[in-house]
Amino acid sequence: EMEYEEITLERGNSGLGFSIAGGTDNPHIGDDPSIFITKIIPGGAAAQDGRLRVNDSILFVNEVDVREVTHSAAVEALKEAGSIVRLYVMRRKP
């Protein structure tokens, strides 16, 4: 069973403070093209906020749908998102 969360982060000097993997051209798990959080960087915006978790998958960055995009398109969406970034994420319920 999945749960969904909308997380708004303010981009810090060091960016959003997380790493991603995945994409249609580089699936992270099997042939699932989802964009997954692979690392939360200590002291970064995501770590300070505390809600984003490793293995969360990002569905939307602001209004941009990143469910079926290449890795570089997801990176671009995050880069272009401005200083306030709304992430709509999905994760397995614990």
Rank of each mutant, 00 (worst) to 15 (best):
T38N: 15
G43W: 04
G23A: 12
A46F: 14
K39H: 11
G12N: 06
D56N: 12
A74Q: 01
V75W: 07
D31Q: 11
D49S: 05
I29G: 12
L9N: 01
I20E: 01
A74C: 09
A45Q: 06
A81W: 02
G82H: 09
T70F: 15
R67N: 15
K39P: 01
I20M: 10
G17W: 01
E80H: 02
D65Q: 15
R51C: 13
I41K: 03
I35G: 01
I35Y: 02
G43P: 08
I20P: 02
E68T: 09
L87H: 00
A46V: 11
R92K: 14
E6P: 03
K93W: 02
F60H: 11
L78Y: 02
D25Q: 05
L78P: 00
R53Q: 02
A73I: 10
Y88L: 02
I29H: 12
G50P: 04
D32M: 08
G12H: 08
I40K: 01
L9F: 10
G15P: 04
R51F: 02
L9T: 02
R51N: 03
I58K: 00
K93G: 11
D25A: 14
T38R: 09
G17Q: 12
G82R: 12
R51P: 01
G43N: 10
G15V: 08
E68G: 05
Y88D: 04
I7Q: 00
D56E: 08
P33H: 11
V61N: 00
G23E: 03
L78W: 01
K93L: 02
G43D: 05
L16M: 04
T8E: 09
T8I: 12
G15I: 05
S14D: 06
K39S: 09
E68F: 01
Q48S: 08
E10R: 08
R11Q: 12
I29E: 12
G43Y: 12
I29P: 08
A74K: 01
N13D: 04
A74V: 12
E5C: 10
S72P: 08
I20T: 06
H28V: 13
T38L: 13
A81F: 05
L52W: 00
D25H: 04
A77E: 09
L9R: 00
E5L: 14
D65T: 12
I7T: 04
M2W: 01
I37M: 02
G22S: 05
